[in-house]
Each structure stands twice: as C-alpha cells, then as structure tokens.
Deep mutational scan, measured.
Amino acid sequence: CHSECLGNCSQPDDPTKCVACRNFYLDGRCVETCPPPYYHFQDWRCVNFSFCQDLHHKCKNSRRQGCHQYVIHNNKCIPECPSGYTMNSSNLLCTPCLGPCPKVCHLLEGEKTIDSVTSAQELRGCTVINGSLIINIRGGNNLAAELEANLGLIEEISGYLKIRRSYALVSLSFFRKLRLIRGETLEIGNYSFYALDNQNLRQLWDWSKHNLTITQGKLFFHYNPKLCLSEIHKMEEVSGTKGRQERNDIALKTNGDQASCENELLKFSYIRTSFDKILLRWEPYWPPDFRDLLGFMLFYKEAPYQNVTEFDGQDACGSNSWTVVDIDPPLRSNDPKSQNHPGWLMRGLKPWTQYAIFVKTLVTFSDERRTYGAKSDIIYVQTDATNPSVPLDPISVSNSSSQIILKWKPPSDPNGNITHYLVFWERQAEDSELFELDYCLKGLKLPSRTWSPPFESEDSQKHNQSEYEDSAGECCSCPKTDSQILKELEESSFRKTFEDYLHNVVFVPRKT
C-alpha cells in the first residue's frame, strides 16, 4: 500500500485506493498535508475557505447554543480562536489581540433580562453583547459592586439597553466600559436606550469621564423622579442622539420631579488639616426662599486615587461607600458681607490618608415646582503625618564578641513616609551569675543571650482551647457569634421535631 494509506488498500502504491488515510483526505486521495488554498479540518480532512465560511455563517444565523462559528488559524479551520487571539470578521482569520481579548457573548432569543446578581454573573467577562440587555433589578445585597464585577467589562451592545423598574439602582456607572450601543435591534418605538419607572436612579454616568455613542435609535425617559433633566440632556449631547427624540420621548413632568437638581456650584473657602482632623468651610448658599434650606450634607471617604465619582458603590438597598454628615444651616444675616460661612470639623480620621470630599445642599421643593440647590466639586484632601507606631517583631542576635545583629519589621501604621529608623542602645553591667558559677561542674549549661522565638506554653494553649472559665478566673470563653447562636437554635429545633416524629412513629394507638 501507499505510504499515506492506513489499515489496508485495494490497489498497491495508489493513494486513492486506501481504506483510511494516515494524515489527511483531499478529493478522494490521501495526502501528507493540505496544500494551499485548503485548510486542515478536524485533523483528517482538507477543506477550502468557502466550506469553513459556510459553517461560520450557519452557526451565526441559527443562534443555536453550542454550535461553533468556525475560524481560520495556522492553516486550520477550527471552532474558535485560541487564547490571546480574536477573529477578523472580513476573512475569519485569528489575529493577536492588542491588550485583553474581546469576548463576544451571543444571547438566546436576542435579549437577556438581568433581574438578579445570579443572572448578571452569566455575563461575567463579556466585552461584546450580541443582542439586547434588559435591566430589571428590584433589590439585593452589595448590588453596585456585584454588577460592576460582572457587567463592568461590557464595551458594546449590538441591540438596545433597557432599564425598567430597577428600584435598587442609583447610577449606571457599573457599566464602566460601555462605549457603544449599535441599535441594530430596537425596542418598540425605535428606541435604543429605554429608561422607565426607576424610582431611585439619580445618575446615568459621570459624563466628564465617560463617552457613549448610540449609532441608531432614540432615547426614552419616563417616570424617573430623581433623575434630573440636565442629566438626560447631557446624554443626548454626548451620545449623538440630540435631535432624534420626539416631543413625548422625554417626559418633562415625570423626570426629576422629586430630585434636588443642583444648578449652582458650592466653593470651599477654608481648608485646614491635622493628622486626624480636617476643618472645612464653604461659601454660604440661600435659595430664593431661605426657609427652603434644610441644611447641608457632607460626604467623605478614603480615596487612594483621584478618580472618585459621587455615586460609586451606591445602591438604593443601603450600600453606600460614603460617610454622610448632616449639618444645620448657619444663622442668616441681613448683611451679605457678614454672612457666616458654614463648615464642619471632621474628626477621627487616619493620618497621612487622602480623602475625597464634597458637600451639597438639602432643600425642600418650592411652590413653583422649581428645584434649587448647590453642590461642590469633589475635592481631595490629605491629612498630615504623625509619629508612626512601633516597629514590629524586633530580633537581636550576637554573632561574635563585638557585634549584635538587630532586625525588625516595619510598623503596622507608618502614618507617613518613613525615611529612617533611630536605634538606641545602652551598655549593661555583666551578670554576677557568670562569676559565681563553678565551671568545672559536669552538665553545666552556660547562660545564653542568643534570641529564641517566643512560644506559647501548654497552660496558655489549654486556656485558649477551654470553653469555660478556669477556677483562677484568668480566662473566659469568647462570646458566641450570631451565626453560632442561630445554628444552635436550628439544631435544637431539629432535635425537638425529630423526637416528636419518633414518638408518633414508635407509639401507635392500640386498636379498641
């Protein structure tokens, strides 16, 4: 048989008469490798580009789960590009990614509803959504962080984005990388972005840091009482949809009607710091009717980097990364020049730590249904340095008659930039024990000054392991946590139920 035959053949030295091919099969003959313009397919066939392209389009058009959109890589027609490569849609070739590779997620039936953290986790790592997304989240724990972890990498949506009755959302900033909504599939009414009845939605994105392009379709905003109209108009300008909307697409009466839409800028007039305090004062603000001013709200939190936005980490279910302080308005003076500047002394802060701070007014709604208010920009203030805590785990070892090696770990709280350490030492008198000992005694162990690591005695271990207080009263049991108490109650309830079950099964009433 021919060298490319495997198993047997019907005619000697003829690659077209093989029972099976050793390498690849091409047009009725066995070959060692697939010549151009053919590609290896499933490690035994040679196919042309049209064959591989037909497989790709067949799966793409069917949208069946589990099928493969075949691509070409290293002269092979394979189910998908290997790690580190992405497909070129024009020629199906796998090309190296520039940075992290995109991950295209194809949605069944063309859309997916995100109504819980669990459903959001199914899209973790996706960068391109081939379909439409509907966000409908009523509640949950730590929602802002969970949504950002699972949806934060999405850069492109081919269909539309719909935010509907998501009472738990305060902001859409968890879509931190969303840059493009194509609108290839539109919501009824030709809408590519749809926001309806979101009672706590206050911000779409921080438009000073976020760009969003909507290729096709219109915007729809109705019944978002805490979303200011200025935020919607800003989205029109940034996304390129200005002029597409009709009169009733953006409701003037049901958007922002319960919001404090600040239209003035508060400026800080005085800032002073110490290692654990920050004193702030800002310019006074009074609405047209000074009785509408209820006070100020001061927001602050630790910020290692200057990239904080107002609604980071917030949701309507209680999660809030900001510390909020309510401040009463100052006494009002008739003389504008003698107006008191409101302020606040922030206490209990960490030394040498940068804080993000902003302040906003708290006002009631005027009778004319106009909203007044003022808010400052987010500023960054760093507390002063102070003395560091003591170095940890000092170790001293003498390696000769004239040297001592000293080692330690950095302090747990540096409280500033540590530039150097101060080492103090003092000579001590020799131990009298060394002169009084009889060095001729056998088995004498000389006193040693070398360091030995501390260890816990058996008594201390027994005390720590004991669940009861000892007789001397030195140790006591740790208080039980809520989960331990709940577990004990469940076990007790189970024992009672099981005992009742045994009584009912074992003891049967005697027939009379």
Rank of each mutant, 00 (worst) to 15 (best):
S171V: 02
F220T: 15
K277C: 14
E310T: 07
K350F: 09
L266M: 05
P342F: 08
G373V: 02
I188K: 07
L161G: 03
P288L: 09
A168Y: 10
D367Y: 10
N141R: 06
A356V: 06
S171N: 09
I232F: 08
T361M: 05
L108D: 00
T127N: 09
T127Q: 14
H106D: 15
P287M: 05
G343T: 14
T309L: 14
F296P: 00
D206W: 09
T241V: 08
Q216A: 14
T241Q: 11
L219Q: 04
S260R: 04
S132H: 05
S402D: 09
I134F: 07
H341N: 12
V324T: 05
N248L: 14
Q339H: 14
M346N: 04
P351F: 10
R202V: 05
S239D: 05
A385K: 06
K277M: 11
K218V: 11
Q216L: 06
T254Y: 11
F221M: 09
P287K: 01
S401G: 11
L266Q: 02
H210Y: 15
S389C: 04
K234W: 06
T113W: 02
Q245V: 07
V397L: 15
I327H: 07
I157E: 06
R332M: 04
R281P: 01
L123S: 02
T323A: 14
F311V: 07
L108C: 05
M297V: 04
N255E: 04
S208N: 05
T353C: 07
L229V: 10
L107R: 06
P351E: 03
K277G: 13
A251P: 11
G240Q: 12
P336T: 07
V170T: 09
L169C: 14
L204T: 10
L172P: 08
A303M: 07
R272K: 15
N150I: 02
L161F: 10
N150W: 11
N142P: 14
R164V: 05
D292W: 03
R244I: 07
H106Q: 11
Y194W: 11
L298I: 06
G110V: 03
F193H: 04
A195T: 12
E146R: 15
G243S: 03
S402H: 10
N224T: 06
N142Y: 07
D315S: 15
I135M: 03
D393V: 15
P336H: 10
D328H: 08
G125H: 05
H106W: 04
H210T: 14
H341V: 10
E187T: 10
L133H: 03
G140T: 13
D292C: 13
K407A: 01
S208H: 02
L201T: 05
A168M: 05
A120T: 05
D197R: 06
Q403L: 10
W322F: 06
I154L: 13
I379K: 14
S319F: 11
N248G: 08
L108Q: 04
